[in-house]
Amino acid sequence: MKILTLNFLTCARKACKATNAAFPLHPRDAELEIVETDLNPLFIRNILPRIEWDALREICVELGLPTLPDAAPEPAALFAEPIVPADTMQDADEGAEKQPTQLLQDLHRLLLETTIATGKLVCGNCGHEYAVKEGIANFLLPSHLV
């Protein structure tokens, strides 16, 4: 399960959805795994405004990942002006493409490639633990919690 996915998950219990404490879910006993995937710079740019940055920072701290800056980066920080070798300058199309910055690549690595392979996701409101196995979180509730 990707770190990005955590941005769109809460406790499955109806009573918890009405509370702020149910978001984000808190990883516990998490075993992380890097699953490489192709970099899609525009995807990262488009998704960035939808990230709840404070929640993402909190999750990174809980997972022992490097601390994120206080505020989400500006879109302008994701791309650098193209560095075009002299012998390809005549290729206008290629020359017009902006280059992904290290920051963008770091976000790709964190949001899409860093995954929770096994562990638990814990609701901050009710304390219910959802298991993550083989990279898949299971949100089926026992009948007394539905």
Binding site: K2, L4, F8, T10, I136, N138, F139, L140, V146
Partner: peptide, 21 residues
Amino acid sequence: AARHEPHSSVVADNLSLPHPL
């Protein structure tokens, strides 16, 4: 459904979905 990049999938019940409203 686990591997369809860049997407993600979870096990959940249609009547108790684990997503923000």
